[in-house]
Amino acid sequence: MAASSPGTIYEAIGGAEAVRRLVEAFYPKVQAHPLLSPIFPEDITPVMEKQYMFLSQFFGGPPLYTEAYGHPMMRARHLPFPITPERAEAWLACMRQALEETVEDESLRMLMLERLSGPAYHFVNQP
């Protein structure tokens, strides 16, 4: 497994443990959200593991997702799910709450949310 680069978001938030805490704080919010829960499976555990792997890589940590599944191709992987602008906003709202619970540094939270906003809206495939 490759080490993360110095000065990454991954390192700044505390590495693997911090990403795991973020994912564990995030998915109960997703499951409780009326717009999001219908597009997620009841057994959220595999989704959480993939998200952990992806976010580790996305924020500059080891390329866990690519090692396990190949290139992320996230837009293509999300095409089967009806993602509206409202669902993208709901996803980001849940992530914002999870970040507030797990990342102390406000500027780091804002940076992470900003980085996630592009992909969240890029996955929109429904009006």
Results as ranks from 00 to 15, higher is better:
residue 1 M to N: 08
residue 1 M to F: 15
residue 2 A to K: 13
residue 3 A to H: 10
residue 4 S to D: 14
residue 4 S to G: 15
residue 5 S to Y: 13
residue 7 G to A: 12
residue 9 I to Q: 09
residue 10 Y to F: 12
residue 10 Y to Q: 11
residue 10 Y to P: 11
residue 11 E to V: 05
residue 12 A to S: 15
residue 20 R to S: 14
residue 21 R to I: 04
residue 21 R to T: 00
residue 22 L to A: 01
residue 23 V to T: 13
residue 23 V to P: 07
residue 24 E to Q: 10
residue 26 F to S: 02
residue 27 Y to S: 05
residue 28 P to W: 03
residue 29 K to C: 08
residue 30 V to A: 03
residue 32 A to C: 04
residue 33 H to S: 01
residue 34 P to I: 01
residue 35 L to E: 15
residue 35 L to N: 04
residue 36 L to W: 11
residue 39 I to K: 07
residue 39 I to Q: 13
residue 40 F to R: 06
residue 40 F to L: 09
residue 41 P to Q: 11
residue 41 P to S: 07
residue 43 D to C: 08
residue 48 M to C: 11
residue 50 K to T: 09
residue 50 K to M: 10
residue 51 Q to E: 14
residue 52 Y to D: 08
residue 53 M to W: 13
residue 54 F to D: 03
residue 54 F to R: 03
residue 55 L to Q: 10
residue 59 F to P: 01
residue 59 F to L: 13
residue 59 F to G: 00
residue 59 F to C: 03
residue 61 G to E: 01
residue 63 P to R: 05
residue 64 L to W: 15
residue 65 Y to D: 06
residue 69 Y to W: 08
residue 69 Y to C: 04
residue 70 G to N: 00
residue 73 M to H: 14
residue 74 M to Q: 15
residue 74 M to L: 14
residue 76 A to P: 06
residue 76 A to N: 09
residue 77 R to E: 00
residue 77 R to A: 04
residue 78 H to V: 02
residue 79 L to W: 02
residue 80 P to L: 08
residue 80 P to G: 03
residue 82 P to I: 11
residue 82 P to V: 06
residue 83 I to H: 12
residue 83 I to C: 12
residue 84 T to S: 11
residue 86 E to T: 06
residue 87 R to F: 11
residue 87 R to A: 10
residue 90 A to E: 14
residue 92 L to A: 15
residue 93 A to M: 11
residue 93 A to P: 10
residue 94 C to G: 08
residue 96 R to L: 12
residue 97 Q to R: 05
residue 98 A to T: 14
residue 99 L to T: 05
residue 99 L to V: 02
residue 102 T to P: 09
residue 102 T to Q: 06
residue 105 D to K: 14
residue 105 D to A: 13
residue 106 E to D: 14
residue 106 E to L: 13
residue 109 R to V: 12
residue 113 L to G: 09
residue 114 E to D: 09
residue 116 L to Y: 00
residue 116 L to R: 00
residue 116 L to E: 02
residue 116 L to T: 01
residue 117 S to T: 14
residue 117 S to H: 00
residue 118 G to W: 04
residue 119 P to M: 01
residue 121 Y to Q: 03
residue 121 Y to V: 03
residue 122 H to V: 00
residue 122 H to M: 06
residue 123 F to N: 01
residue 124 V to A: 05
residue 124 V to S: 07
residue 124 V to K: 07
residue 124 V to C: 01
